[in-house]
Design a binder for these strands. Sequence first.
DNA 1: GTGAAAGCGCTAACAC
DNA 2: GTGTTAGCGCTTTCAC
Lengths: 332, 332
Amino acid sequence: MDEKKKPSIVDVAKWAGVSTATVSRVINHNGGYSRETEEKVKKAVNECEFTPNANAIGLRTNKSRCIGVIVPDVTNEFFARIIQELDFYLLKHKYSLLICNSNEGYELENMHIRGLIEKHIDGIVYISGQNEIKHTGKIRNIPVVYIDRAPKNAEMLIMSDNQEGGYLATREMVRKGCLRILLLRDVRCASTIRYRKEGYLRALREGNIPYNEELEVSCFPEYAQARSVMDRLMKSRGCFFDGIFATNDMMALACINVLLEAGVKIPEEVKVVGFDNISLTRFTSPQITTITQDTRQMALAAGSTILKMIQKKEIREKTTIIPVTLEVRGTT
Amino acid sequence: MDEKKKPSIVDVAKWAGVSTATVSRVINHNGGYSRETEEKVKKAVNECEFTPNANAIGLRTNKSRCIGVIVPDVTNEFFARIIQELDFYLLKHKYSLLICNSNEGYELENMHIRGLIEKHIDGIVYISGQNEIKHTGKIRNIPVVYIDRAPKNAEMLIMSDNQEGGYLATREMVRKGCLRILLLRDVRCASTIRYRKEGYLRALREGNIPYNEELEVSCFPEYAQARSVMDRLMKSRGCFFDGIFATNDMMALACINVLLEAGVKIPEEVKVVGFDNISLTRFTSPQITTITQDTRQMALAAGSTILKMIQKKEIREKTTIIPVTLEVRGTT
DNA sequence: GTGAAAGCGCTAACAC
DNA sequence: GTGTTAGCGCTTTCAC
């Protein structure tokens, strides 16, 4: 065993006085060896401080035990939470997570995908973040699990029950007496948003409240844009609503700040519900009522699905819907 | 060239009518071939849709073009921003980023490190997040760059100019007339916090304001803890300060909410400055004055340093200090 | 300027 | 139950 080099399985074999095949068998728990040799080998492994060479294994088996995750923006807490849970789940299964931040950009995404392919990663988790999927077809022969949105030909999809979320959010306000509930929605035509709106409509119907087109306002799903839209609305038409369902928490926060600054009382005069339950919703005053997307379950579903695909196990459901919950707090 | 299998350099060599050695040379721009063969090979590479097998390269060269990043919590925006920039920088240099979320846990971190070693990653970026570095010595022969904090025997360290940050924050309040500036500090004894306090003291000295021990309050650096500490303080002693320097933005936010709820006017009666400039500081009302840690420069420094170490280039500075800036907003 | 061939560390098929 | 060995795809030395 060389002084400088890392010990290989050959070194271990020599040390234990067995063949490399036997060492390999023991390491991989493949059976076909006696209790005795097992001990010998394990001892040798420890004493040599042997660690397997993933590159060699990968080359030999065409597996890398790496999963790539493509994400529009790690900086977004919702995505970060998914990554965190995914990392934890995969670590337990001895997989590594390669992070690919696309910044919502086509070019970065493609560079990343190219890198992933060269690295022979075993699978990809693709978190779309409501934007269009652009790469379609570029990824071949690699299992892909989509979270949130997926291209038509996609195999596997994990998503929250957005319809139910929209419903729960709106029902909460209806039950508490709101009659003119503003829908402040992400302007982008994502299916997730469409579902949330369906839920909103369902809750209105259930409460015998007619849908009013004037109460639907679109804007880009960022704080700044939501703020200016609400500012303009308040200036031009005043507070003509008694509830707001914002399709994400940042927009909800923008509403709350605008209303509070205009002297409107929350939740007495206007109630507000957001979506996502990012941590920020607990750091405001009042704290924001919102819909929890269960990032943990989403990550778990994505992780176990991708592992199953890698192992070519059969998967019953192509689409997994993760339940959402209403978090009642100070704004309703 | 097999139908199902990915083409290897053997296929390309056959296609181009040259040897694998030549293909390798062309691919790696190693010179020693004619303009003519270069064209032939390049053409073959394209037509075969050849992508190199990173495992084979890694096995042969003992390089993986992978960098691991160990981070206490991806969900923390400050860390996420560093990861984002690092990912971008490394992508440009054709390196991949393996994410290792330690959740501030010893065990997870070690599992991750073990995985990184097996994967023969080329380097590690270690973002400590002010907690102690525990692994010391476990990582051998792998270049490591530390961000924020480093163990004694560490080679490379990137950090913000925390002293200057504390100074700028405090000076801003001194200049605007504050005389009793509360220091709400992270209770953990990290060097970063120590530096920030030094800056605070320097600004006081400069303003001829005596340091008052009673104005230094410690707590865990989370919103909830900061809130309850401030709540208690206000209940027991009222508002005996006219400024607060909180050593991170979450604590600053907690202060602001407590004060606002108690009817204290910000910034008229009390001014507040945070630290980090997380995006949340712009989503509050009033927006929070804070110190920007330049995550982009930190990531750039970490990225270029780790690449230099990998290439065994000499590095002048062991420690890189990244400048910080004061962001004046509504709370001062 | 180009090719032949060894070998990186490992697994798995086959032999015993 | 264990050993021998071929070969995964690539780089690199050594010939020519």
